[in-house]
Design a protein around this nucleic acid. Structure first.
Lengths: 110, 110
DNA sequence: TGCCTATTTGGTAAAATAGGCAAATATAGG
DNA sequence: CCTATATTTGCCTATTTTACCAAATAGGCA
């Protein structure tokens, strides 16, 4: 494989891995609406708060979100609004997939 | 969390997880150029052929690729061209991230 | 100061993932 | 039928991920 690509794929994989968890997707989706603090996200997802905190630190380590402490709470927000587009693409891929599967089933059941 | 979303996030996570590996990203990127058989991808990535085969089966299980046996080889191809867009989004997110980090570093005179 | 609230960290156990080797399969050709 | 080629599967080990509880931290404030 071309040498430069190797590294690029690793970086891409790091981002994708950070997103590849239902709870983290839910949180990113919520953060797309605006910043939230940990307990708000905990309410949303429903896991232990320490679990949420760890998910958030994974997202932060990947560079997708950033945090700021204000008063007694820590607020998280998306670093790049473009993540929403990315999620839109995932959604589109899912839909396209479903569409294709249906076509196969209806078409001939190959 | 809204109940319907729970399931949607799981589906999205499944797709993202399938993509979240450097070798699989390399293979998808290659398949974006056209169909390839297993040994061609093995050459590209450089792992054991059984490992490649397993990566391919993960991608196939996720619905991102499909395979067809012709003659003595099995050819794999993308099921939805839209995956390339998705990868483009990941790339854009990465770049945006780098841009932001640089800004921060410059800002404080690293 | 010392308590309270919000959040992070450490420890740990279970589950999932990754990768290689060897064995099993499948097919083309002689 | 037998062999060579292409691919998949089984087995096993090492690593990573996930989640919870309990304990540690960090600020704000009575």
């Amino acid at each position: 494989m071309k040498r430069g690509n190797q590294e690029r794929y690793q970086l891409q994989a790091r981002i994708l891995k950070a997103l590849a968890h239902p709870a983290r997707l839910a949180m990113v989706d919520e953060l797309a609406c605006g910043e939230r603090c940990v307990w708000e996200l905990t309410d949303l997802v429903g896991s232990d708060i320490s679990t949420i905190s760890k998910h958030l630190s994974i997202l932060r380590a990947s560079g997708l979100i950033e945090s700021e402490k204000r008063g007694t709470s820590v607020y998280y927000r998306l670093r790049c609004p473009c993540i929403t587009q990315l999620l839109g693409c995932v959604e589109a891929t899912m839909k396209e997939d479903v569409r294709k599967r249906l076509k196969v089933i209806k078409g001939r059941g190959r």
